[in-house]
Simulated scan of single mutants.
Amino acid sequence: MSQRASMIPARTLTRGTTVLAAPLLLIAAHHFGLLQLVSEPEQARQAILGLGALGLVAFVVAYAFLQPLGVSGVAFVLAAPLIWPWPIAFAVSMSGTLAASVVGFSLARFVARDWMTKRIPARFRTYEGPLARRGFATVAALRLVFLMMPMLHALFGISRVGFWTHLGASAVGYVVPLFVISYYGDEAFELLRGAPLSAWAGLAAAVLAVAVGRLLMRRHGRRRHGSAPDMTLSNSKDVTP
């Protein structure tokens, strides 16, 4: 290795590798049929099953690295029971979700800590105190509610929560929703696919009503109690790996 190359910081090399890996993973996911599960589910299912164990590995690896970069993790979880029987789908979903969480956590803690810190939404900053006092319980609760949201990966990565605490608590938070999706996912997909337009309109109206209600309640709470104090996330390097 040349002297000039040896002077390149390891973090810079890691970031460059991450940027280059993303399009390659998308190409690989397309090649293995993972991106065709929505448009052509049966053909994609047969293609992935035809790969045997390689299909399982490709699914988990694509999930692990694409989800922290913005690809929907829920899409992977919903797709798994369309491909495999529910016990395998559950194992694959848990493996991929935990792997994605580790990748996102590691990117925030070791690769892009400063960049991630500046982009944590204000509504997540209020969890810094509970994460410092009750790390395991807080991580498990947030995973149960928000699942594999990429911003949660970042929040946990820049917090003082230890790596193994994060991994164990994430597994606890994931197990129930992933089990339910894996067990009922195939039936739910068929039900939703055959639902009439009026059912989709009603569902959209219900979601909109809930979102508006939460927004109004949040604004009312702010007016009643005043603005919350600014709890800026610590940017200290003193974290437990």
Rank of each mutant, 00 (worst) to 15 (best):
G173Q: 06
T165I: 13
F156E: 04
R143E: 10
A112E: 04
A80M: 07
A169I: 09
G194D: 13
L152S: 04
W86Q: 09
G135M: 12
W200K: 07
V145P: 02
W84V: 10
F124T: 05
W115L: 05
R218A: 15
Y174T: 11
V139M: 06
H166Q: 12
R143D: 08
L208S: 15
P177L: 04
A205F: 07
L215S: 14
I120C: 08
A112N: 04
G221W: 11
G173C: 08
S101G: 15
P196I: 11
G73R: 00
A100C: 05
T126V: 14
A154V: 00
R113A: 10
V111N: 04
A108P: 00
F76E: 01
S93V: 05
S170E: 00
A108N: 01
A89V: 08
A80R: 02
I88E: 12
L208N: 09
W86K: 05
V103N: 04
Y184D: 06
H166R: 02
V161Q: 06
M94R: 02
Y127C: 09
K118T: 09
A112K: 01
A100L: 06
A199R: 12
L215D: 12
T138Y: 05
A75S: 10
G202D: 08
G162H: 08
S101D: 03
A99P: 00
R134F: 14
L152M: 15
L178T: 08
H153Q: 13
L131K: 01
A195T: 05
W200I: 07
E187V: 14
L98A: 09
A171H: 02
A79D: 01
G135S: 12
A112Q: 03
H166I: 02
A199I: 14
R193D: 12
P130Y: 11
L142N: 05
L216H: 03
R160T: 11
R109N: 02
A108T: 00
Y184H: 11
F105Y: 07
G162P: 03
L152T: 03
W86C: 07
W84L: 12
P87N: 10
Y183V: 14
V207A: 15
F136K: 02
R109T: 04
E190N: 12
L131M: 12
G104K: 01
R218K: 14
K118I: 04
A132L: 13
F90V: 02
R218W: 10
V210A: 14
L197W: 13
P130I: 10
R123S: 14
V176I: 15
W164V: 14
H153R: 05
G168S: 11
P121M: 01
I158N: 03
S101T: 10
P81T: 07
I88Q: 13
R218V: 05
R134P: 04
F163D: 07
L215C: 11
W115S: 06
